[in-house]
Amino acid sequence: MNNQLFNYLLHLADNTLILSHRNSEWCGHGPVLEQDIAITNISLDLLGQARNFYQYAAMLTGNNATEDSLAYLRTEREFKNLLLVEQPNGDWAATILRQFFFSTYQELLYKQLIQCNDAQVAAIAEKGLKEVTYHVRWSSEWVIRLGDGTEESRDRMMVAADELWRFTGEMFIPADYEKEAGISGFGVNVESMQQDWLKKVEAIFEEATLPMPGAAGYMQRGGKEGTHTEHLGYILAAMQYLQRTYPGCEW
């Protein structure tokens, strides 16, 4: 088995699983019923994408691995998600902005992945892209609505941008398995996406009348290699506890 492809799939799966987890925390607590439904809907889409990537990774690795063993039985040092997606929900502005940053990245990523030389990855990306297109539209509209809404909503967006910006650079700094993905063609060279991502963010921020965060700010990194923020441990503690308490059961 190609170990770097396996790691790459885990990275893609972990990103979507962890963000799905965060969004699902909103379920029943959203600011208005329609948006409670929307954020939960996005959570469900992302969970579906995670399952697709895990299932493929499990098939490649053999060893009786399943989507569940990969999600529930790896530790916080083995998870490869971006630091951005494990950040707490905060208020609606922070949740919206986190989604917008990630979905914009994911749209660029999946658009290239559908042309990669691994047919299975390409097929998963093709299904995911339809969903991500909706996530980008939804989160962009909310960035604009909050940025250009009231004074309070604008202030909250600026606080969220200040908080989250330092986690955005990691998306475009390739881990070893991403470098290999670009070279071998089963994935995407993420460095090449950064300018397009910035352009889109700038355009939406402009429409939202929001100032761009300092583009050259120092960027946090480590998630892709399993060095996370302190938040991930708690996510996994909740997520994995039943599987850990009653190992080897069917549910």
């Binding site: 699983l17 987890h21 699902s24 925390e25 379920c27 029943g28 019923l33 329609e34 409670d36 439904i37 939960t40 809907n41 959570s43 469900l44 969970l47 579906g48 995670a50 399952r51 895990y54 989507e67 569940d68 999600a71 529930y72 996510i235 909740a238 997520m239 506890y241 039943l242 599987q243 059961c249 549910w251």
Partner: peptide, 25 residues
Amino acid sequence: ITRAPSLKRKAILIAKVQDEAGHGL
């Protein structure tokens, strides 16, 4: 939802709770 014991059960539970919001609407 955050503690569901398998990804399949988690997906089903999220979809279900989402249906309930729709019924409320």
